[in-house]
Each structure stands twice: as structure tokens, then as C-alpha cells.
């Protein structure tokens, strides 16, 4: 390392770094730990010890129903965004034509556009045209914000892909179609998986579009939590949030252990 960490400058840097992690993780820790408190309101650090709020959260059918809605919508959005996005990403890296960069910029632009603006536009659009019904309105909206994530992850992987591999497959008798499925897809699979996982999480966590476009009788989990938090400060809301955090953490850990394991095996 260039800077001696024990020098005054190094210590200041390390201190700020420690502060950052405390700052980043504190509110997340709060939602996991606070519901263990025995008081009837949320406090941090918790006082007393009980599992009652976590039990209440798990047995609350509202949350379970919302969780299922969220999972369904996230799954549909991620799969659709992945298929559409990979096709476009492949074409963006494979063909060079006038306006390619502009097209790529347009495809990526929902990433920086305020979701709220997107939500207002889409609500007006769906009300006026009557297009799509039920969960599909929200799925369409989520596909729009998921595709940029799929592209962000898969474009670099596809750009790094050695075109000679595809040509080798063609040379050995594979049609363009077969070459894509037998060689391109398996080689870039880690990028596709990562992009799809990212798309799933984006849709699952998203609240603004869901507030505007979810079916009235079937809110997603973030919408349910949002409404519950606005109404009151029930410890069971914190408990369901805490469960969500723990589940996310478990998924992240699993994903990284799996990819580390795969790297080791190779």
C-alpha cells in the first residue's frame, strides 16, 4: 500500500472508512434487532427480549400475500427483462451501425430517470389507453427499469466475449443459431445470471412504481410496508422488514459462496 495506515493521514482515512460502514449498516441493523425488544414500541437498542413481533409478522396473512405478489411480479419482470435485454445486448455488441451508441444510451436511460416521473407518465398512459390489466401494468413498468440493469451487467461480458469462439463453432458446423446457444450463452452465463438476479432484486425492492401501478387489492411487499410505516409504528412492520433484510443477506451470501465455489472448482 502506498499510504502507511499507521501514519496520521492513514488513521484519518481508516477512521472515516469505519464511520462509513457504521453509517451504512446502522439503520439496517436497527430493523433486524429492534423487533426483538419486549416494549410495545420500537426502541434501539431494544429493551427486554421477545420473539412475539417476529411471530406476529410471520403469521400475518397480509404480509404473506404481499410477499407472494412481490415474488410473482419480480420473477416475471426479471425473466422478461432478461430475455429482451440479452437479445438487445447481443445485437448491440455484435453489429455496428449508425446510431448504435444512441440506441444504447436510450436503453440505459431509465437508470437515471426519476422513477416517480416514470410512474406519473405510465399511470396517465394506462388510464387513458386502458392497455394491460391486473399485475401486467406493474410488470411492464418494472421491465423498463430492469432492462438497464441487465444491459449494464451483460454488455461488458458480451464485449469481452471472443468473437473467434463463435466463428470456431460455425467453422465446425454449427449454424448461427446453434453457435449462439452452444457457445455464446454458456460462456457469458455468469453475466446473464448476475443481470437477472439484479433485475429481480430491483423489481422486488421497488416502491414508487408499485405505489402507482400495483393492483388495488394486491399491493407488493414494499408498498405494504410503506403504508404500514406511514400509519403507525408497529413492531411487526419492523419484524417483517427485518426478515426481508435477513433473507436478502442470505441470498447475497449464497450467491457469492456459490460463485466462489465455482471458481475454486475450476
Amino acid at each position: 500500500m502506498t499510504i502507511a495506515w499507521r501514519s496520521p493521514l492513514g488513521l484519518v482515512l481508516l477512521l472515516l472508512c469505519a464511520l462509513t460502514f457504521a453509517y451504512l449498516l446502522l439503520p439496517i441493523l436497527v430493523v433486524v434487532v429492534a423487533p426483538f425488544g419486549a416494549t410495545g414500541y420500537l426502541a434501539f437498542p431494544p429493551q427486554g427480549w421477545t420473539l412475539k413481533w417476529y411471530a406476529a409478522a410471520v403469521s400475518d396473512t397480509r404480509y404473506l400475500a404481499a410477499l407472494l405478489v412481490s415474488l410473482r411480479i419480480a420473477l416475471a419482470s426479471a425473466v422478461i427483462a432478461c430475455v429482451i435485454g440479452i437479445a438487445a445486448a447481443y445485437a448491440l455488441t455484435r453489429y455496428d451501425f449508425l446510431g448504435r451508441r444512441l440506441l444504447e444510451a436510450i436503453f440505459l436511460s431509465p437508470l437515471i430517470l426519476p422513477t416517480l416521473v416514470l410512474a406519473v407518465g405510465l399511470t396517465l398512459f394506462f388510464t387513458r389507453t386502458g392497455l394491460l390489466q391486473g399485475p401486467w401494468r406493474l410488470i411492464a413498468a418494472h421491465v423498463i427499469i430492469c432492462i438497464p440493469y441487465v444491459l449494464r451487467v451483460s454488455l461488458p461480458v458480451l464485449r469481452r466475449f471472443d468473437r473467434a469462439l463463435e466463428e470456431a463453432a460455425r467453422n465446425l458446423g454449427a449454424s448461427p443459431f446453434a453457435a449462439f446457444f452452444l457457445v455464446v450463452l454458456p460462456v457469458v452465463r455468469p453475466g446473464i445470471v448476475a443481470g437477472t438476479v439484479l433485475a429481480f432484486i430491483t423489481s422486488f425492492d421497488e416502491v414508487v412504481l408499485a405505489l402507482f401501478l400495483a393492483e388495488p387489492g394486491a399491493p407488493t411487499l414494499p408498498v405494504t410496508i410503506y403504508s404500514a410505516v406511514q400509519l403507525g409504528f408497529e413492531p411487526s412492520v419492523a419484524a417483517i422488514s427485518g426478515l426481508l433484510v435477513l433473507a436478502t443477506f442470505a441470498v447475497m451470501l449464497l450467491y457469492h459462496l456459490l460463485s466462489a465455489f465455482r471458481r475454486q472448482r475450476d
Partner: peptide
Amino acid sequence: PAHKRDTGLVFQSYALFPHLSAAENIAFG
């Protein structure tokens, strides 16, 4: 089309399929 030409080609970068073993690479064609 390239895949119907029946030509053996050795690439500069070898272009071995990274996800297939040596035997599977050879068996591809």
C-alpha cells in the same frame, strides 16, 4: 455459409471453448 463449408480452421487465439474440456472441444464438430 461458414458452417456448411467443411473447412478445418486453427485460430490465432486457438478459440477453444472455455466451458468445454479438451475432449469435448475436439468432439464439437
